[in-house]
Design a protein around this nucleic acid. Sequence first.
DNA 1: CGGGACGCCTGTGAGC
DNA 2: TGCTCACAGGCGTCCC
Length: 278
Amino acid sequence: MPELPEVEVTRRSFAERIEGALVTGIRLGAPLRWPLGCDPEMLRGFTVGQTQRRGKYLWMPLSAPAGGEGGGGLLMHLGMSGSLAFGESLGPPGRHDHVDVLTSRGILRLTDPRRFGAVVWSASMQHGMAAKLLASLGHEPFDPALTPQALHAALRRRRTSIKAALLAGDIVVGAGNIYACEALFGAGIDPRTRCDRISRPRAEALLREVRSTLSLALELGGSTLRDFRDAHGMNGEFQGQARVYGREGLPCVRCGAAVRRVVQGQRSTFFCPGCQRR
DNA sequence: CGGGACGCCTGTGAGC
DNA sequence: TGCTCACAGGCGTCCC
């Protein structure tokens, strides 16, 4: 599920409700990508702060009880198949529920069948594992510092394909496989185009499309949050909006040409050979 | 160093 | 029905 819009929608769905809650315990299920990185007992009595998002990560600050030391936070990632639920009556943890943060206001629960997700303790976003994981992230897509010129300049230094660069997330974060395909379609750029061959006006168009694609998804409440049980999670609201993703062989909504699928870096890329040019 | 492949896991749908 | 296979919204690590 989780590209930037889904992660942000997730954040908004629990951040205000959990802020100020007291941690009463942590329940761990099967291991995730990395170990928690601290003794779960240590977090008892900590207060939850304002949960924020960086790229596809969520950072939930935890402050130690008055006079106590060792505050920090939990860095959370949903991987490919993760989701977070927050509520008072979630029921007993199931086979894919791997972390429960028990609080005075309810349980924050990470469910993740594939276990590519993570919940990791760090002393701050600038320390430990969090710092390491966040270090190479690019601009937030809506950061005003990310200007067309800045994007163009960054692309000029790259030889890899524009699709691969978007997915890498070290120039701009947030667009995963679906939204990268959709944004490139919107901008009329062939996903196989080398970054350093993208003109300034096209970089500008791409930035505009990355932003509008992500905002639209955000407006729609993400893609599949509501109905995540479904197979590829693609039965959500964004599926109806997708113009190329998952539409191999179907006519392009703009020009009617058959949408193509190619593989780039072991990931499917969908594009319209008629509308998208190198 | 940049760039690409690999591996982590489980689940699902298609095809036989 | 049951098997095998391809594929899945991410990303750190390894190797060239």
